[in-house]
Design a protein around this nucleic acid. Structure first.
Lengths: 184, 184
DNA sequence: TACCCTTTGTTGAGCGCTCAACTGGCCACC
DNA sequence: GGTGGCCAGTTGAGCGCTCAACAAAGGGTA
C-alpha cells in the first residue's frame, strides 16, 4: 500500500466523485434491497442465488460452483441455501460422484417465486438505473465497471495467495482493532 | 411499479452492464472494507462517521445531523456511536438547548486513529478506482452517480411520505415473506 | 495399504444492520 | 396550566454476513 512514498491524496474533484459514488451506489442498493424484501420477501443476494440456479442446467448446481458464480463464500452460501431450503425454494441432495459435495437445485415453488419476483425487480433496476442514464452513459458505466473489475481481480488473487503464506511476520504496522476483538 | 403495463425487461447489453455493475461495486466495497478492517480495525461506515465528525465545527455534531450527513438511520447511528464510544474514539454529552438531544464529538484518540487510517484508505480508493479510470471516465462516473442520485431522491421522499400514510390497504399484491417473518 | 495434504461443505460466535417499540422532552393549542 | 402530537435518541430481536474451526471424503506418494 506504498507506505514508504508520499500518499497521493484525493483532489477536491476526486473526493466529490467518490462521495457521489458512495451515495449513489448506497441509495440504489438500498432501494433494490427494499423492493425485493417487500415484494418477494428475500434479500437481493438470495434472489441472485435463485437466478443463477434457474439458469443452470437442470436448475441445479454444485454448492461450490454456485458460490463461485454468485461471488459468495462457501460459508455464506451454506447459510443462505440452508435458509432457502427451509423456505422450500431450494433443495439439497448428496452428490454421487463426489461424496463430499452436494447439489443445490431450485424447486418448483422456488421457480414460481422467482418468476413472480422478477418483474418488480427488473422494473426497479430499469427505472432507477437505465432510465436515468443516456445510451452513452450506459456504455461508459459498463466500461468503468470492467476497468474496476479488471483492476481488482489481480489484487484478489494476490490476497488469496498471501492468505496462504499468512501467519508470518503479520501486522508490521497495523492499527489497533476496535475493542481488542478484530472481527470474529 | 407499473403493474398494469408490460414489463420492460433488460436487454442482453443492459443485463451485462447490470451484472458488471453489481460485481464491480461489490468487489470495490469488499476491498475497501477489508483494508479498513485490517489496518484500522473498523468498518467503512464507522470511518465515515469519524470523517464527518472531524470536518464539523468543534469536531462535534448533533446525533440527528450526523445521521443525516452519513445517510444513516438514527438507530444505526445510535448503535454505531455507542460502539465508537466504547472504543474511546467518540464521546457523547447532553445538549443544553434541547434536552432530548445529544452531541457526539470526536476525541483526541479518535482523531489520531482517523489520521492513522486515512493514508491507507485513500491509497486503496485511489489505486482501485481513480488509477484504473481515465479522466473522462472519472467525469462520466460523477455524472452517472449524480443522475442515479437525482433519480432516486424523489423516490426516497415519496417512500417517506407513503410510510406516513401506511397501514392503509397494505400489500395489495405483495409476495410471501420468507418464513412468515418478513424482517424484524 | 498407510499416510498426508487438499478440497467440500457445515457450523457457531460475533458484528453491523433494520425494524418496531419505547422513553423523555419540546411545543402548540385549548 | 394541562394535554396531545411531534421529535430526538435508545433499545432489543432478528437477519445476513464473516471468520475460524471443524468433519469428512478425495487423491497423491511412499
Amino acid at each position: 500500500m506504498e507506505r514508504v512514498s508520499e500518499v497521493r491524496w484525493l483532489s477536491a474533484r476526486e473526493q466529490r466523485v467518490w462521495r457521489s459514488y458512495l451515495h449513489a451506489t448506497w441509495m440504489l442498493t438500498e432501494h433494490v434491497e427494499r423492493q425485493l424484501q417487500q415484494e418477494a420477501g428475500m434479500p437481493h443476494t438470495y434472489y441472485e442465488i435463485l437466478v443463477v440456479l434457474s439458469e443452470a442446467p437442470n436448475r441445479s448446481l454444485r454448492m461450490s460452483e454456485l458460490a463461485a458464480t454468485c461471488h459468495a463464500s462457501r460459508s455464506r452460501l451454506s447459510h443462505a441455501v440452508a435458509r432457502l431450503e427451509r423456505a422450500g425454494w431450494v433443495q439439497r441432495h448428496a452428490c454421487e460422484k463426489d461424496k463430499r459435495g452436494s447439489w443445490a437445485s431450485l424447486t418448483e415453488t422456488g421457480f414460481a417465486v422467482l418468476e413472480k419476483a422478477a418483474p418488480g425487480h427488473v422494473t426497479t433496476v430499469r427505472e432507477n438505473l437505465f432510465d436515468v442514464l443516456t445510451e452513452e452513459q450506459v456504455d461508459a458505466l459498463g466500461e468503468i465497471c470492467a476497468a474496476i473489475r479488471d483492476g481488482l481481480a489481480p489484487t484478489c488473487e494476490k490476497a488469496i495467495a498471501e492468505e496462504e503464506a499468512r501467519c508470518a511476520e503479520a501486522e508490521a504496522s497495523a492499527g489497533e482493532p476496535i475493542e481488542a476483538t478484530p472481527r470474529g
